[in-house]
Design a binder for these strands. Structure first.
Length: 556
DNA sequence: CTTAGGG
DNA sequence: CCCTAAG
């Protein structure tokens, strides 16, 4: 799939739902003056148009669902029209089923030939292999072929387009050359109609639709001016033509040849220094829209890794083309008023579209949410924990001091600690349960994975308290190293945030530190900073257990 | 799902 | 901590 370039003469008709889309066949003049990129959109269940994601494209390919075409240009900002606007028979997935596309094919065939041809071209583009578009694309030099992604997203033509294509073939026998449109008379004076006019002529309803399509959310605003402005801004802010050296500037598509210009070009300036970067749309870009910024966040992994340094991301300005890397997914946090809408920008065949940020939550991590919920309490929890720990330490010290007979052998000391620590731990546990435990048990999906920063947050780092370590050691002593699940179940049931894997990791770390310390250890090599001081006893315990398990690993 | 290991 | 390959 690739970006299709054509011209749209009248965007309004598109929106009226009539399939009287007027697409002027590509005369080079029109092409340059009113370039249009078509993008795949999905018709959601409520009738709104959602940009297609990569997966959906594939899905289209596989299931034969049809997408509507979305027209994107300055002259036609975010105006979208569905292939079958009147049909409401959507599949459960919200995609139009191919069968419903049929009528449209006929509609196409009933259109005047020039229009039909153009439409056929465009539809053809949606599915045809890259090389099939030469007709269209090689007519213009301004589109850099090198940056067109030749992803075989649609290896097979989707049904409706193939249908169209058949019709196309038939028709082309009649209309071979798409000459200048004979529809000059009907055609509005486009020179006067640039950009704004399109929106001006749209009814409020259509504007609202457009708004929906643009921002991914519905609006009840009936103020035409406001809508227009928002749509225009939204479009200008996000519309870029990555496959080309064109840039949206001052609501016009300009060629972007000198490198100095592309940085401040309103499009791909990541990480919102939009105001400082000489934005071309300063006028209306003041309040909310300026807040719209893009946080780089392609993959889950990337998300997490970047979540920590995303602020200092020095803005990858330079190459627009770079940003259009294949399947690059970025996310935009558009804060509209109070709401924070997170969307991601999917680079689709070289053109970027926003799609609502479909939760990329790590599958299977309710604790993520737990953490999110507990985040606010975490500090106090931590404080509590540490205080409890210190108390516990005191207790331990006191106890061991008072009962010197018990502290020699590892077993006795372990018992001793066990008693003491379990007590203290129970306190801590109750604390934890009080503040977080209950919420962590039935919590689950309350917290959104996307937080303020717009990124998935890494699991909050929970320092292991001494009690936890002790419990762990004790659990290992009881059930053996490797029975993490059991240990978790039987000894850590209260600590909801420690997973068996966590236990395993901690144990590994314990062993590590233990072995690291053992050679040169004179009982007192306390790591001053960072991690807590693990009492000697525990260390010894760990060592013993380690040896035990090392000596008899297969044995049980 | 649980473990083990690498990152 | 996270991720993932192996049972």
């Amino acid at each position: 799939m690739r970006t299709v370039v054509g011209t749209v003469e009248d965007c309004i008709d598109m929106f009226e739902g009539s399939a009287q889309t007027r697409i002027i066949p590509l005369s080079p003049t029109n092409l340059i003056e009113n370039p249009v990129t078509y993008k795949l959109v999905r018709v959601a269940g409520d009738g709104r148009l959602v940009p297609a994601t990569d997966e959906e494209i594939v899905e289209v390919n596989e299931t034969g669902y049809a997408y509507s075409i979305r027209c994107l240009s300055e002259s036609c900002p975010r105006v979208s029209f569905s292939v079958v606007p009147t049909r409401r028979n959507f599949s459960s997935s919200g995609l139009l089923q191919s069968e419903y596309v049929e009528p449209y094919t006929q509609e196409v065939n009933t259109q005047p030939e020039d229009e039909r041809l153009a439409m056929i071209h465009s539809l053809h583009m949606l599915s045809a292999p890259p090389d099939a578009n030469i007709q269209l694309c090689n007519e213009t030099d301004m589109f850099d072929e090198d940056h067109v992604h030749h992803e075989p997203l649609l290896q097979q033509p989707i049904p409706f387009s193939s249908n169209v294509q058949h019709g196309c073939n038939v028709d082309q026998s009649n209309t071979v050359e798409p000459t200048a449109p004979p529809a000059d008379a009907q055609r509005p004076d486009f020179s006067l109609v640039r950009g704004e006019i399109c929106l001006n002529n749209l009814p409020i309803k259509a504007l609202q639709e457009t708004f929906k399509a643009t921002f991914g959310r519905a609006t009840t605003v009936t103020d035409k001016t406001w809508l227009k402005r928002r749509i225009t801004m939204g479009l200008t802010n996000s519309c870029n033509v990555p496959t080309t050296n064109l840039t949206v500037k001052d609501k016009k598509l300009v060629e972007n040849q000198d490198k100095a210009n592309d940085a401040p070009s309103s499009t791909d300036h990541a990480d919102g220094h939009s105001n400082a970067s000489g934005h071309s749309l300063t006028e209306d870009f003041s309040s909310e829209e300026r807040a719209a910024k893009r946080v780089r966040k392609p993959t889950r992994r990337y998300i997490e890794e970047l979540s920590e340094n995303d602020e200092k991301q020095p803005v990858v300005t330079s190459k627009d083309e770079k940003l259009s890397e294949k399947s690059e997914v970025r996310s935009i946090s558009v804060s509209l008023g109070k709401r924070v809408t997170v969307t991601r920008v999917v680079s689709l065949a070289g053109s970027e579209i926003e799609v609502p940020y479909v939760s990329l939550v790590r599958r299977s991590c309710p604790r993520e949410n737990i953490m999110a919920l507990m985040e606010c309490h975490s500090s106090c929890l931590e404080a509590k924990a540490s205080s409890g720990e210190s108390n516990m330490l005191h207790n331990e010290v006191l106890k061991s001091a008072s009962g010197p007979d018990q502290k020699e052998s590892a077993t006795s000391s372990s018992n001793n600690e066990e008693d003491v620590l379990t007590e203290v731990d129970e306190d801590m546990e109750t604390e934890n349960i009080d503040s977080s435990g209950n919420s962590s048990d039935d919590n689950n999906n309350i917290g959104l994975p996307t937080m303020q920063g717009g990124g998935l947050r890494r699991k909050h780092h929970r320092a292991w308290t001494l009690s936890e370590v002790t419990q762990l050691v004790e659990g290992v002593a009881k059930y053996g190293a490797g029975k993490w699940s059991e240990i978790k179940k039987l000894s850590f049931s209260s600590h909801s945030y420690r997973t068996p894997v966590d236990l395993k990791d901690k144990w590994r770390n314990l062993l590590r530190t233990n072995f690291a310390q053992s050679p040169s250890n004179i009982m007192g090599s306390l790591k001053k900073h960072g991690s807590m001081h693990i009492p000697m006893q525990i260390l010894l315990q760990v060592r013993e257990l380690a040896e035990k398990q090392a000596l008899v690993p297969p044995n049980h």
